[in-house]
Design a protein around this nucleic acid. Structure first.
Lengths: 342, 342
DNA sequence: CCACCTTGGTAAAACGTTTTATCAACTACC
DNA sequence: GGTAGTTGATAAAACGTTTTACCAAGGTGG
């Protein structure tokens, strides 16, 4: 099919080895004249080295892989973009694979990816895989290549990790509401996800710190989608809460829609904090205060970790826990009829 | 490093060929007993076939690639997701690469992708590449593998193509406004992109059909981002337009923000149609009428075309032009003080 | 003129797989 | 007892590279 090194060798009248050495800019004793000829022929005939043959002997593919749960989620797609940029800068290509948040896919992808001989892996485990933790851990332990767990981790695994402190993020959000005088604070959370659990923990932590008792009626489940935020609001707004912490922005917008329909004003009449800081420009009239986790930073750190590991296998694995930032806009004010602040 | 077919052969006491045949379920004369043993050993020792070695001899990688301009754009990420699903179903892995809408990247990616010996390619050319059309066309012509152009095409190239009829979409949007009695209709459009040009053409076409003269003051440039919609609105709302066609939803939201700030009500006081149908749930109070192009459908058709081509190289290339749908919500009403309709 | 260096290269093994042609040992049949 | 067919395999080439060790010819210094 394509032009090979052999064809070039034949045309220039040298051996394959000569051509290979020249084309790879290896130190070698080939005359400048011949070198030029080789490059010229390669260019003219559109020579493209066969990566399969190359990997076979060098044992590296200059390709990294990223397994992520949902490419449609902008948090992950921003992450993917940045990781790809960083990889490119280091001379790697990136293979992106989508697991649809399914354990089965995680498992299969892990297989096909190692078969393809990628040099390293960025792994964002699917939420479903937390139920099959033991199994996936086994598989990851047998992985013959370095990998870094990103955003969602297994503490048990001894490998490079980079993540955001989800508990802290939720804690910051709730404390911000408390500092404006709120005590009856709702919470929409996805306990099906590990990070969701951590956000719930942060919520509880903030309550504890103020000596407020945990009220299960103020907490409801959401699945991170717009509709579930709307439905969560329907349930929570029957209680006497004056504010809510909604554990992602998409659901926060759903929540806002319900508030709007009920004629309740944000922040005059109700305060709200979201998570992700992803949708602020879209919401007319409301500037949503939200906990920001920068996917780009996550991506950069992940890439740094993995490429370092590829250069030096023997340093002990490290864990990077990034601090989320509370981005204060104007969706929080003191509750109606209440003392102003702390 | 890993376990090879040779190791298994040694352990089971047979030749490499025997093991290869068995593991690939090829018809062969190996005793059932030995077969079982081979599978058992492969499993126990976590054998994973080396794809590089395999491709080297079979000349196929069971891998397809997708080059897209912006993975953060949900239109493209939905498309990517669906393409990946379809590929998986057909037994291919998908290599996703991001060009950042840059010609340079298109060029480089095309190179590295063919080097990696992928079996086929989904190509969404970057907008910038329209300026280097001739060059990129040359490169695509030399591509040794089948490819399908998706969403953005070069008419000159004889290959499989799948796209949406952008001119038609814009035409539908503008005609919808006209049918509600609007005659002074603004237009925000990105002429830096080929599809943007087509949308402008659709806008003009609708005007022509009604015998309305084209007024350049009603048309302004946008770059598909939120802010540019806002800025476009600042310019256009100084004219006497009563409605606008904004050529994507993101900009439409920016436009809405300006309207909101000026105290103008949609649709009572101003009518608006967007493009993409991607953001409707996010806009409080306004249900944006928008032209829908389903990325999933685009992905499915693209995949169908490419996999068919891989099975049968010799059928003539086909072009699939999908019809956009106008999704009518409630951002369009007749202008104030005007006769009701058509 | 011998020893040594430099210049300009090459031969050959290796990487892990697939695939085709071939083979030896049996069995069965007439 | 000769022919044909079956069973259970194998040997060897091929894929396109990289890499190491080696070689031949010519020049140079003592």
């Amino acid at each position: 099919m394509g032009v090979t090194i052999k064809d070039i060798a034949k045309e220039v009248g040298l051996s394959v080895s000569a051509v290979s050495l020249v084309l790879n800019n290896r130190p070698c004793r080939i005359s400048a004249e011949k070198k030029e000829q080789i490059f010229a022929i390669a260019k003219r005939r559109h020579y493209i080295p066969n990566q399969a043959a190359r990997s076979l002997v060098t044992k590296e593919s200059r390709m990294l892989a990223l397994i992520l749960p949902d490419i449609e989620n902008t948090f992950f797609s921003s992450l993917a973009k940045r990781i790809e940029d960083c990889c490119r800068r280091e001379g790697y290509m990136l293979l992106i694979a989508n697991s649809n948040d399914s354990y089965e896919q995680d498992k299969n992808l892990l297989r096909s990816i190692t078969a393809r001989g990628v040099d390293g892996l960025f792994m964002i485990v699917s939420n479903e895989s937390y139920q099959y933790k033991a199994k996936l851990i086994q598989q990851l332990k047998h992985l013959p290549i370095p990998y870094v767990m990103v955003d969602r981790i297994y503490e048990q695994l001894s490998c490079d990790k980079v993540l955001y402190d989800n508990e802290k993020g939720a804690y910051l959000a709730v404390r911000h509401l408390q500092e404006h005088g709120h005590t009856r604070i709702g919470c929409v959370v996805n306990t099906a996800s590990n990070n969701g659990m951590l956000r719930l923990k942060g919520y509880k932590h903030a309550l504890e710190e103020r000596g407020i008792e945990y009220n299960p009626c103020y907490v409801t489940e959401g699945d991170y989608r717009f509709e579930s935020g709307y439905e969560a609001a329907s349930r929570l707004l029957e209680t006497d809460i004056t504010a809510a912490f909604v554990s992602n922005d998409m659901m926060a917008i759903g929540f806002l829609k319900k508030l709007y329909e009920l004629g309740r004003q944000v922040p005059k009449d109700f305060s709200l904090v979201g998570y992700d800081n992803s949708l602020s420009p879209f919401v007319l009239g409301v500037q949503l205060t939200s906990v920001a986790q920068d996917p780009q930073l996550l991506g950069e750190e992940a890439c740094r970790l993995l490429t370092n590991r590829l250069k030096d296998k023997d340093t002990p694995p490290s864990t990077i826990c990034l601090p989320p930032q509370l981005v204060i806009r104007s969706s929080v004010e003191p509750p109606l009829h209440s003392p102003d602040c702390i």
